[in-house]
């Protein structure tokens, strides 16, 4: 089971996460009396990078219309800010007393804080990106349920013209997301459901077309034609339900993380 659910998050956090465990092992006994080097310069570099991240994070919030991101991201940025304070404290303390157990503990605390803060920022941002894809999926679902408004061929042309770009974008985004995931099971499921949507959509459009053609030649008194019309209507509704189900499954999987093991139990 991968620890990080996307390749991007994994590439950013995995190296430092491994190093932190080394630091913890070495400092397991903070009173070991070993001397620490002057860490002012590397701590300063972390501080500068963190300042930049905090600035970019606030800009991201300002430019986003995602209310959840606007609420969660600043909290994660504060965690990074707090972690930097611990690192600064560690640096000052260890400079005056290179054996200081307090300084060493502050160093570990700061490093852990950086990892947790950056992790929270990445998760918050990632969830916001997922919400954008989910929004696209929901737009496609909305389109599925307005077929009742299609009364003639011109309407169908307009319908297809409007649906195509949203559906294409949804497909592209889900496809890209699938490649980003580290969890193989989630990836497989996304591929399966997306393939279903792709293969069902032409049949769905055809069913509307056949329905309209049949409706155009419909004789009020012909019971046999009436029967055929009902069958076509049923087939169209069945396809709508199927595509709706597939997209809802895509949404569900998009919102899963590696930690949602119970979902797959």
């Amino acid at each position: 089971m991968p620890v990080f659910h996307t390749k991007t998050i994994e590439s950013i956090l995995e190296p430092v996460a491994q190093q932190i465990s080394k630091l913890v092992i070495l400092h397991d006994d903070a009173d070991n009396g070993n001397l620490m080097p002057d860490l002012s310069l590397p701590v300063q570099v972390v501080q500068q990078a963190a300042d930049n991240l905090i600035r970019v994070g606030h800009e991201t919030c300002t430019n986003s219309d995602d209310s959840l991101l606007k609420r969660e991201l600043p909290l994660a940025l504060i965690r990074v800010e707090e972690a930097c304070k611990s690192l600064q404290e560690a640096s000052v303390t260890l400079k005056s007393d290179p054996k200081s157990p307090f300084g060493k503990r502050k160093l570990i605390e700061g490093e852990r804080g950086i990892l947790q803060g950056v992790s929270a920022i990445l998760l918050s941002f990632d969830e916001s990106e997922v919400r954008k894809i989910v929004h696209l999926c929901k737009q496609v679902i909305e389109y599925l349920f307005i077929t009742e408004l299609i009364e003639k061929m011109d309407d169908l042309v307009t319908y297809v013209k409007n649906l195509t770009p949203v559906l294409t974008r949804m497909t592209r985004e889900v496809d890209a997301r699938e490649k980003e995931l580290t969890h193989q099971e989630h990836r497989n499921k996304l591929v399966q459901h997306l393939e279903q949507v792709k293969s069902l959509t032409p049949s769905f459009i055809s069913s509307i077309k056949i329905y309209l053609l049949t409706l155009a030649s419909f004789q009020q008194n012909d019971s046999q034609e009436k029967q055929v019309l009902f069958c076509i209507q049923d087939s169209k509704d069945f396809l709508i339900k199927r595509i709706n189900y597939e997209i809802k499954e895509i949404i569900r999987i998009l919102q899963l993380t590696s930690y949602d093991e119970d979902e797959w139990a």
Partner: peptide, 29 residues
């Protein structure tokens, strides 16, 4: 995205800091 690059810079810098601290410790242990 800018935020991902900025986050990467922070973890890289944090990695360098850990290396500086642990290398010195290893030498002394």
């Amino acid at each position: 995205e800018q935020i991902l690059e900025a986050a990467k810079s922070v973890t890289n810098a944090a990695g360098v800091l850990i290396k500086a601290a642990t290398t010195a410790q290893k030498e002394l242990v």
